[in-house]
């Protein structure tokens, strides 16, 4: 169409999409700028620190030049942005490999881990929270509610790396059922994925139960009952989508933390992903690599948030107009 419909921008979905994309873009810009500035905020000469006291001044100068650290700050910023668009993220100070290549090699393992844990957390939390919500509706089954909530609080408060240690000891060392290090096949996924998913699943299911209880008491659920739909249809088709939307709003941030959680879990299981890379790079002061990996993590989190917003808009069309 040559002539856009008048008032296209007035449509809630379009305005919603525009607002969310703007927020994504601004956040992205802040992230890129922060990762650029990181190198410059380090006190002293980061290259000297990275190469050590014994490195020759020539080598330090050479590396500084390669990174363009002696150029004016704005020019460096410009070069950094240009590099991002051409996929040039500088080279590692220690291995001399391009950072983009390192990320390319390491990212898939981290993605597989994160996506699997994501899926597991949701597959466990949604049915569990929904069923518990139905069981404990209208203040029924108070004892079940208490047990579930208490267990949820305790399990949700155990950090993933501590859980890792316990899982490694029980399933890896004592029972020797599962490998405890490396990425060797399906079995090697079990422990890291479980360790990563348990906490968020506990918290998500707790939130969902509370939302479900509230939604089951809503007028429109009574309407669904007045239509004499089978109980399953009432809960699954009328209550759950509404409970999920409010859960997603709160749970979206939680999914973001899972991206960061991979860092710890990868280090426990010697997982060949970005999490191992960033820690060894921070310890080795390999700043270009750190910069690149931080950027990838940040983009990952932003992408998850955007996905949550999209899911929300699909599940509950009102969310596109609710906030101004």
């Amino acid at each position: 169409m040559t002539n856009p419909t008048p008032g296209l921008l007035d449509r809630p979905t379009v305005r919603f999409a525009a607002r969310r994309l703007t927020r994504f873009a601004v956040s992205l810009w802040v992230l890129v700028t922060a990762s650029f500035l990181m190198l410059h905020l380090i006190p002293g000469d980061p290259i000297r620190a990275a190469l050590g006291m014994n490195a020759s001044q020539d080598l330090v100068n050479q590396r500084r030049q390669a990174l363009g650290l002696d150029d004016p700050l704005l020019l460096q910023y410009w070069d950094y942005l240009k590099g991002l668009f051409t996929g040039d993220l500088h080279t590692s100070l220690s291995s001399q490999l391009p950072v983009a290549q390192i990320i390319g090699e390491r990212l898939p393992a981290t993605l597989e881990l994160a996506v699997a844990a994501f899926a597991l957390a949701i597959v466990v939390a949604v049915p569990l929270g929904a069923v518990m919500g139905v069981i404990t509706r209208n203040g029924r089954a108070r004892r079940a509610e208490l047990v579930f909530t208490t267990a949820g609080v305790i399990v949700g408060a155990i950090p993933e790396f501590v859980l890792c240690v316990v899982l490694v000891w029980i399933l890896g060392v004592q029972l020797q059922w599962l490998p405890v290090a490396g990425k060797t096949g399906f079995a090697s996924f079990v422990l890291p994925v479980v360790a990563l998913a348990v906490g968020p699943a506990a918290i998500l299911s707790r939130i969902l139960r509370v939302e479900m209880v509230a939604v089951v008491g809503a007028d429109y659920v009574r309407t669904a009952r007045a239509k004499r739909l089978p109980a399953f249809a009432v809960y699954a088709k009328h209550a759950l989508p509404n409970a999920l939307t409010s859960t997603l709003t709160l749970g979206g941030l939680l999914l973001g933390t899972m991206v960061a959680g991979t860092v710890l879990v990868e280090n426990v299981f010697a997982w060949p992903g970005l999490g191992s890379t960033i820690v060894s790079s921070i310890l080795g002061k390999d700043y270009p690599v750190v910069q690149g990996v931080v950027l990838v993590y940040g983009v990952g989190v932003l992408a998850v948030n955007l996905l949550v917003d999209v899911a929300l808009a699909l599940l509950d069309p009102r969310s596109t107009i609710r906030e101004a």
Partner: peptide
């Protein structure tokens, strides 16, 4: 800033 997990900020 609040959109980024605390651990990621802590690493930064």
């Amino acid at each position: 800033a609040v959109a980024f997990p605390a651990l990621l900020l802590a690493l930064f």
